[in-house]
């Protein structure tokens, strides 16, 4: 390890990047981060590149990338043969997946609107609850379809 660079213990790296020590260990376990070296006592030591890597991971997570996808991005980042189009493709795929999830959530929200509207009398006993009845009907439908 180059001693000219800023040497960080796991605690210092954690406070610098605002993630917990456990998260850093988890990133290491998942192959996202490697200590730059170890102290004579065997403690993990990191450097400025480690901090940049953590920030990269956090930003990518904010954009919806999973840790597995972030690992791929990190590999792409380190490969000379990678071009911007390779990274852009992954960003477009992520956008497609997010939009698809938004559509699914909207459909769920609409289904809930319908259930909420069906329950006109909230003082009715639960056995007459329109929402429970509608959910049971949905269950029966699924059971019939599976047969």
């Amino acid at each position: 390890m180059n001693l000219e660079v800023n040497v960080l213990t796991i605690g210092k790296l954690a406070s610098l990047t605002r993630v917990s020590n456990d998260t850093l260990r988890y990133y290491e376990h998942e192959g996202l981060l490697e200590p730059a070296g170890k102290s004579p006592a065997g403690y993990r030591l990191y450097d400025d590149a480690s901090a940049r890597r953590i920030r990269f991971i956090k930003h990518a997570q904010q954009c919806g990338f999973t840790l597995a996808q972030i690992r791929e991005l990190l590999v792409l980042r380190s490969r000379d043969a990678t071009c911007c189009g390779d990274v852009r493709k992954r960003a477009i795929e992520k956008k497609l997946q997010i939009e698809s999830k938004i559509n699914a959530m909207k459909a769920m929200s609409k289904a809930l609107d319908q259930l909420i509207a069906e329950c006109a009398d909230e003082k009715q006993p639960v056995r007459e609850c329109a929402i429970i009845a509608a959910l049971e009907r949905a269950n029966m439908g699924a059971r019939v379809q599976r047969r």
Partner: peptide, 11 residues
């Protein structure tokens, strides 16, 4: 009808 969805710039 065949539709190929692509990422622009994808080699």
């Amino acid at each position: 009808k065949v539709e190929l969805f692509y990422s622009p710039g994808c080699p």
